[in-house]
Amino acid sequence: MRHLTVDRRGYPVIATVERSPAEVDFGSISERRKLALAAFDWCAVCGLPFADELRWQMVFHDEPSPAAVLSGEGPVHEVCALYAAQVCPYLFSSHARLGDEVRKGTVRDPVVWFAGFESTSAVTAHESQLQPGVYTLHFEHRGQADEFSYRSPDEIRSRFTDVLAREKDLPVSDPEGVLIRLFNRLDEGGEVTGAALVAGAAFAKDIFEVQGLGPFRGKNYPVVAGLMLKGTEQEILEFSSDSKDEAFSAIGPWVLERAGRFPAAMQRWRARGQGMVRRPGPPPPAGPGRSVAKNAPCPCGSGRKARRCHPSGIAG
């Protein structure tokens, strides 16, 4: 957690919470920030990438385990799940209650279950059952391979110690390092959300209906995402190099270095975009009914009228 910004009290500010330079709201999850986590495949606690490891999620324990689990919260590293169990008041105490307006008074289950999944297979927008008309992002996890549970965090302290001892730093490329640094700031990180949209998230179904993403609607994010999807390497790099936005300067190189290795959610969004984006074709032939009036001189230079000389036009 050393890379995380701390609030005025010295607490690390985890990846998903709403924040501003003046205030951090640990009780509120930002959908804009969840979009960046999904797009770049980052942990919902520490905001760093996943390697080839299980993705952990708090679950309601059912037997047998379902083939897929849908959650409104992003996946986390195992060490981050164990950390959260010891520092989050709701996860720590069996007597804790939620205090937000929608779920006020909800008491934590006596036993908390975390499950580890092999993959996050998709991220989709769903209308909230609690707030009609409000869309939130949901993460689909598949391949449950491990789990742990506890009543009190004391029961998992030894597991936390063991996992922490095995932790290693994951190499991060320069473009992704820029995005992580910007995402970790105490402002809302809107420009990183914009970078996620142009990398391909703009193609996700109902994405601009998601809570907090209204301001991004109608600002040409799908157009730039089309460039990132079907543009040449030179076009992508030129866009990034010409941008005065630091996140947009990093997103072109990130897209190019990730080509063929995009996170699962991004792969799905970009695949959907393939049918939505058309690259401009060659210019129409010069001739009557094209770019030259039928009685104008033919562009071939013959001096005859276009309709007499080359009525079908001249290919460029």
Rank of each mutant, 00 (worst) to 15 (best):
R2E: 15
L4D: 03
V6P: 02
R9Y: 05
I14W: 15
A15H: 04
D25C: 06
D25N: 14
F26V: 01
F26T: 02
R32D: 01
R32N: 04
A36E: 04
L37R: 02
L37G: 07
A39K: 08
W42R: 12
W42K: 02
A51G: 14
H61Y: 11
P64T: 04
A68C: 01
L70A: 04
S71W: 07
G72Q: 00
G74A: 15
P75Q: 03
Y83Q: 03
A84N: 10
C88W: 05
L91R: 04
F92G: 02
F92R: 15
S93T: 04
S94D: 07
L98P: 01
R103Q: 10
G105L: 11
T106F: 07
V112K: 03
V112T: 15
W113P: 00
E118F: 09
E118N: 12
H126S: 14
Q129S: 10
Q131T: 15
Y135E: 06
T136W: 10
E140W: 11
H141R: 14
A145G: 04
A145Q: 12
D146F: 02
Y150K: 05
R157M: 09
F160E: 05
T161Y: 15
T161K: 15
L164Y: 14
K168Y: 02
L170W: 01
E176I: 05
G177M: 10
G177P: 04
G177V: 03
N184H: 11
G194S: 12
A196V: 12
V198I: 15
A199P: 00
F203D: 00
D206M: 05
F208A: 03
Y221L: 14
P222A: 09
V224T: 15
G226C: 12
L237F: 06
E238G: 00
S243K: 14
V255M: 10
E257V: 08
R258V: 00
A259N: 06
F262P: 00
A265Y: 14
R268W: 02
R270T: 02
G273Q: 08
R279N: 00
R279L: 08
P282T: 08
P284M: 13
P284N: 12
P285G: 05
P288T: 10
P288Q: 09
P288Y: 10
A293W: 13
C298N: 04
S302W: 09
K305E: 10
C309G: 10
A315I: 12
A315T: 13
